[in-house]
């Protein structure tokens, strides 16, 4: 596993904990769109944006020829 992938796994674990812990503790009883609704939108958007970043080196290929991508 490469360094960037290891960072990605750590990020995923932090996400997994926050994704459940925050709504089930701090936001459980917030009855507005600014509660769990906003939180889950934001945390998911963060993961998707991080996905764009972590895949940014893909295709910056150091090989040539048939499999040049």
């Amino acid at each position: 596993m490469k360094r960037r992938e290891k960072l990605w796994v750590i990020f995923a674990l932090v996400y997994a904990v926050l994704n459940v812990a925050v709504p089930y503790t701090f936001l459980k009883d917030t009855g507005s769109l600014l509660g769990a609704f906003l939180f889950w939108n934001l945390i998911t958007a963060s993961v998707l944006a991080a996905g764009v970043w972590v895949t940014s080196p893909w295709g910056r290929d150091r090989t040539k020829g048939e499999l040049q991508e």
Binding site: E5, W8, W40, V47, G51
Partner: peptide, 18 residues
């Protein structure tokens, strides 16, 4: 249900990257 479906989406992207 938003949490359920968004978790699914985020997990899918995390797994796809790996």
């Amino acid at each position: 249900s938003l949490g359920f479906e968004m978790t699914y989406l985020a997990a899918t992207v995390i797994l796809m990257v790996l």
